[in-house]
């Protein structure tokens, strides 16, 4: 048997026949590929790739955009307007006087940002996200984010809690007027920066961290959480916002906020050892400073 195989020498007829059959098979394969491409295959693959680029865009959106525009694109008060309402899809281009499509408008704003208060319409700055302009994203990632946002157009979200962008001449509901800081609080702000808190947390005008929650209204948030059922069920023991802030720093695992833009908030992200690394006096000043953020006037 093996000898038969290794001494195999096709006869002339076999060669011509096998060659012809191969030739026909090659032509047939090319025709199958060509006919498939010219009828359905190209458009199917096109739809698949469009869909996958939307998936990629969703991931980038959740990582980078949901923090200000919300997971469902409903907008977050004081942070960013809705990107999924019919108002956004129907009126935005006209409102801002953009002379092209909504896609290019979203791409342009995402890439280059909107400088702070360049127009009376905007209270909040939109940072540039393109690598070339100092942001974190590549061009193709931003193109995918645009695809993801435009994917809301087929069924816009128009519920009551949508945060619309202000009309020209208006502004977002401003944050509470910053209280003038005492020298100790001023020092607390500097300690906030020098201890690297700004690497993860954002405070408008002070820090731009994107990993932890934003602290713009931490006093208000703290009061809300202390009163909540979730907090009472946790190991948290704070009764005042100051205590809540302190607990979050020295024992961050005591209570984890349940909802984050990407789903359930992960535990264990905040380092647990600040009680050892920050001197108590400094810690007091940082807490003193943070408790001014979002504190209603007069409290």
């Amino acid at each position: 048997m093996i000898k038969k195989i290794i001494t195999f020498r096709p006869s002339f007829t076999v060669r011509i026949l096998a060659g012809l059959i191969s030739f026909i098979a090659i032509i047939a394969a090319c025709m199958v590929a060509g006919v498939a491409d010219l009828t359905q295959a190209l458009s199917t693959r096109d739809a698949n790739f469009r869909a996958r680029l939307i998936e990629e865009g969703a991931r980038v959106y959740m990582d980078q955009c949901a923090r200000c525009h919300g997971v469902e694109g409903k907008g977050i008060e004081g942070q960013g307007p809705s990107l999924s309402s019919s108002n956004f899809f129907n009126n935005r281009v006209k409102e801002v006087g953009w002379n092209s499509t909504l896609e290019t408008y979203i791409a342009a704003v995402t890439k280059s940002g909107i400088p702070l208060k360049s127009s009376p319409m905007w209270e909040v700055t939109h940072p540039p996200f393109l690598e070339r302009f100092g942001g974190p994203l590549r061009e193709d990632q931003i193109d995918n984010v645009v695809r993801f946002v435009m994917n809301w157009k087929q069924s816009p979200i128009d519920s009551m809690d949508v945060i619309e962008a202000p009309k020209p001449g208006e502004a977002f509901a401003p944050l509470p007027t910053p209280v003038p800081l005492t020298p100790a609080q001023e020092e607390g702000r500097n300690l906030f920066l020098s201890n690297g808190c700004n690497a993860c947390h954002a405070i408008r005008g002070v820090a731009n961290g994107a990993i932890g929650p934003s602290l713009n209204r931490i006093y208000e948030d703290a009061m809300m959480w202390i009163a909540s059922e979730e907090y009472k069920a946790s190991q948290g023991q704070a009764t005042t916002p100051e205590e809540y802030i302190r607990e979050s720093i020295v024992n961050p695992q005591a209570f984890i906020v349940p909802e984050c833009p990407q789903g359930a908030c992960p535990a264990g992200v905040m380092p647990p050892n600040y009680a050892d690394t920050i001197p108590p006096a400094d810690l007091d000043k940082i807490i003193d400073y943070l408790a001014t953020l979002g504190r209603p006037a007069g409290e």
Binding site: R15, G19, S22, A29
Partner: peptide
Amino acid sequence: LPDIATNEIMYAGIAFAVLAISCV
């Protein structure tokens, strides 16, 4: 000519055909 040439064309054709059919 003709034996080796036809032989080679046959093997080349089979290789090409197997590759093309695999790809579709």
